[in-house]
Design a protein around this nucleic acid. Structure first.
Lengths: 125, 125
DNA sequence: AAAGAAGTTCAATGACCGTTGAATTATATC
DNA sequence: GATATAATTCAACGGTCATTGAACTTCTTT
């Protein structure tokens, strides 16, 4: 399977949102059913405005949904978008699939066209 | 399944290496068997020193291996580390698994302890 | 030994973005 | 209406890091 450059751009954008320790922690807590700003703050020892910021980024990426409390509208609840996680998971699984790795071939250099075995991993360099 | 905070730190470090469009493009080309700096430069229209930099980052992350040409040692060949990609792939698959998402529960707020259904996705806000 | 070639390292620049504290909004209670 | 609460928005700061051009290293060829 071949992956187009445009897909790598899309994938990179998604990875960029996820490549943040605190955002991953937030996602991890949301996975467990935790959902309001204040509680996330208690668990992660973060200021509410910072949590707001990260949740905003996650929301714009389509990973997180928002809902106000029906009884007291001051509370805002966050939850994960299952569909987004499903597509995300398959996209990662496809791109980083080890089975997708083709045997190496030299196209430039002196050994042009030779198919080579996997590189032996060396300690130094 | 519950994922520890330490794992999220590790995962974030990995994601940070991957969250770069040009690095993803390089990985994608390496997947297809391309391997020397010069050739990567031709495909991606990047300066060789920049490719060197990104390859160095990927190498330090353990995703890429290096080997000198046996005939002409000026050429240096890069390849993907299959083992690293295998563990990477399973780590992602585990963390972002939609099946891991627990039902939401209110622990703070007026509806304390209530189990709620998935949030209905709304267009605005 | 000198010239050329493949690649890396170095130093400097600039942009992006996480973080912080303060101000603001929206809602509920007294 | 006034006060309190949950959360967001704003402005400013600072660090990280991709990018660039130049210098350097290593190896080959003549």
């Amino acid at each position: 399977m071949m992956i187009a450059p445009s897909d790598t751009q899309q994938l990179a954008a998604w990875l960029k949102v996820l490549a943040e320790p605190r955002r991953l922690q937030i996602l991890n807590l949301l996975m467990e059913g935790v959902q309001c700003n204040c509680e996330l703050g208690d668990y992660l020892d973060m200021a509410p405005n910072l949590i707001s910021h990260h949740l905003s980024v996650l929301r714009k990426a389509g990973l997180v949904d928002v809902e106000r409390d029906a009884v007291d509208a001051r509370w805002i609840y966050y939850s994960l978008n299952r569909a987004a996680f499903a597509t995300l998971n398959t996209a990662f699984g496809t791109f980083f699939d080890p089975a997708r790795i083709q045997p190496r071939r030299t196209v430039c250099g002196p050994q042009d066209g030779v198919i080579l075995a996997d590189t032996i991993r060396v300690t130094s360099r």
